[in-house]
Simulated scan of single mutants.
Amino acid sequence: MPAAADHNLFRQLGLKHPLIVAPMAGGPSSVDLVAAASAAGALGAMGGAYSNAAAIEAFADQVRQRTDRPFSINLFIPHSIPEVAADRLQRAVAATARYREELELPSPQLAAPYEEDFDAQFEAVLRVKPACFSFVFGLLPIDHIREAKKAGISLIGTATTLEEARALEDSGVDAIVLQGFEAGGHRGIFDAGAADPEIGMRDLLAQCVGTIRVPLIAAGGIMTPSDIRAALQAGAQVVQMGTAFLACTEAGTSAPYRKKLVETSERRTRTTRAFSGRFARGIENRFMDEMDGKPDAILAFPAQNKFTRDIRAASTAKGLPDFLSLWSGTGRGELWQGSAAELIGRLFAE
């Protein structure tokens, strides 16, 4: 079991503030947002899951052109899935046909692979050598852990239960994100087909403090200075915030996504498999509402993610939020629309 001295990890990184600006793959975690967060004394994080090796290296180069501060790269741990059965694909095509017709899209063509080559992505991370490498959906293989340690890269896993946190600690990670049920975006559950444990951040933190000895990072529903103070007082060493930064000027959040986020302070969210095949929390919209009633027409992750990509891209291009994955946590309040540095300053003004 790692020694208590590991709690110095974030001081060793030289962070001014105990904050990670969450990795938000698919656009929001732009080069500008990652660099701005790190330059302001937090840890910026690239959501690299949908990027190939060359794109990961190019992204890191651009961040380093903007700041010499540490940053993190995040990837999805891959899981083998069977080939999509023809009848299942037919159901999915039929269930989404009217959306593609509305968006003037051709019939979909779906073929493996459904995701980027993880080993190639990881090799790019090793070449880039970010301060931290974080991951979701499981455990990093032991040989990958050895290579990261050899490169001097700190490892951050993601847990939604105490059992997952224990497994991560035993595997040799340097810190663990405790992702509460309130968090926006993909749930970090190890088993893609499992029921969601639905454990809130505060409860999960209470279960892990005193049991897990590596630094704990609280994530889920954190929006305000008082939220941050409560998480730190409850035993987290650091907080991770994503939703709060989605409307910042540097965020790569698309126009219809951004408009939906800021039009009300009472965002109605829930978890769904509709967009990717994995549970993820987002703002309720038409696609989510209608597809959640057709579970047999939703493919397994990551096939569903690839299958709906054309729908989401066309929805963005037409300025429509109806068919977008509007990932958002449960935190309430108006979203900051100024710079990330200004928001970080406001969060830690005291």
Rank of each mutant, 00 (worst) to 15 (best):
G47Y: 11
F137H: 04
L140T: 02
S171P: 00
G252C: 03
F71W: 04
V63F: 01
A183C: 07
E266T: 11
F275D: 01
P321H: 06
L347N: 03
F287P: 03
P130N: 02
A183R: 02
S171R: 08
D292F: 09
L324Q: 14
R11W: 08
S72T: 03
A236K: 10
A183I: 02
G152Y: 03
P106Y: 10
A120T: 09
S325L: 09
T96R: 13
F348R: 05
A195N: 13
E342H: 08
A36D: 00
T224Q: 05
I283S: 03
G200Q: 06
R166G: 04
I298M: 09
I311V: 14
G345V: 08
A165H: 06
A86S: 15
V239N: 03
Q240A: 09
K150H: 12
T316R: 15
S171W: 00
A94L: 14
T253R: 06
S154I: 00
G331L: 08
P108C: 11
L261Y: 13
P215C: 05
L261G: 07
L204F: 07
G188M: 07
G277S: 10
G172V: 02
S276Q: 03
R146H: 12
Y257Q: 02
I73N: 05
A175H: 00
L335E: 04
V21N: 06
G152S: 06
S29L: 03
Q109N: 14
A255H: 06
P130M: 00
I81G: 06
S339E: 05
W336Q: 04
P215N: 07
I156P: 01
I222S: 05
F122V: 01
D68E: 10
G157I: 06
A234D: 07
D68A: 13
E83I: 13
N285R: 07
N8V: 14
A274V: 03
L15V: 13
V128P: 02
Q109P: 01
A5N: 12
P106R: 11
A194Q: 08
T330M: 11
T316P: 03
G333F: 11
W327H: 08
A124G: 11
R69G: 00
A4I: 15
L335Q: 09
H144S: 10
F76I: 12
G333Q: 11
F307Q: 11
V177L: 03
R91P: 10
L9T: 12
R229I: 07
Y114H: 07
K150G: 09
A297Y: 09
S29H: 02
L103W: 11
R88M: 11
A111C: 06
Q233T: 11
M201G: 08
D296I: 07
R312M: 13
I56S: 08
P225G: 09
P302I: 12
A94M: 08
P141G: 05
G41C: 10
D68C: 02
P106K: 11
E290G: 08
E123A: 14
E290H: 10
L162I: 09
S265L: 13
M223I: 06
A236E: 04
S51C: 14
G331Y: 09
